[in-house]
Design a protein around this nucleic acid. Sequence first.
DNA 1: AAGGTTAGCAACCGCAACACA
DNA 2: ATGTGTTGCGGTTGCTAACCT
Length: 306
Amino acid sequence: MGRKPCCKDGVNKGAWSAKEDRILTNYIKVHGEGKWRDLPKRAGLNRCGKSCRLRWLNYLRPDIKRGNFSVDEEDLIIKLHKLIGNRWSLIAGRLPGRTDNEIKNHWNCYLSKKIKAKQSHIRPQDPSNGDSSKQKNSSSQVKEATDQAKPDDGSHPVIRTRAVRCTKFIDVPMPDAANDSAANATNSVTPEGEESQRPSLTIPNSDTNINSPGFFLDFDTSDIDLLLMPDPVDASGQCSSYQINGQFQDHLPRADHFADETMIVNNDDSVYEARSSGNWMVGGLFQQNEGPMDLFTILHSAHQYF
DNA sequence: AAGGTTAGCAACCGCAACACA
DNA sequence: ATGTGTTGCGGTTGCTAACCT
């Protein structure tokens, strides 16, 4: 047996009337969002729950910003789209008041073409591509927009982000011998009886100085093969060292910083996100001024304190 | 003025992830 | 551990107004 169909026959489809909007808005004001499946019946609407949810999230929500996209918003969309592709909800999460649907539409109708025009201005059209002035149907336009997510050289394909919640931040005074740490990367057992400086345990929050020496704890390292933290030295977003599967690399394939210290990093087969102010972290740059350090070594050292 | 085309927007659909029993 | 229901996401379609010929 399959599941019950979401929308029964006989429910209203298409554009919402002002009356339906009013009923839905009033209902959600009183009862709150959620339970979308039952909502139409309880609210007295002849709509399917999915349709109600969409109408509320994309149109009726009071915090939705209407009107044209600002230049800053467009820049951010372009930048984020370059990094993470068609992940509209993630992009929308960084544009307060904008919905994923609105951003997607704006991209498909306007931004993708704007970028394409810009690129063809910089790079003359490949003659093998045929006559670019020919009309294109809407599905091929959408496909083009989707393909914009793929870098031209194909070197940094975006797959998807993984996020791991961490609950502890260890503020560790870096040892003076930090410059030895890279060499000790695979063997950093604190000698018996040697008094180590005890790190202070804090809960990461918006005040956590991610640039201070230290690291996040309490996430499953078995599922992480790239660990990064924002480089306090290099504000351009280019990090000078990092590791994948325990191997140090010379240069990050690509990295970017955002105002809230989020960093999304592409490498050959993964995308990771680190967000310090939201207590989220997936990997991150592992770089101290004195030189790169092996995260797992530090984690091992730190675990002795817990 | 009329018909065709394009752009912008709202909504639908299918699928996958998640939650929960 | 598994099955089922719910929710969220991204792709796509359809409608309408504006613009063009």
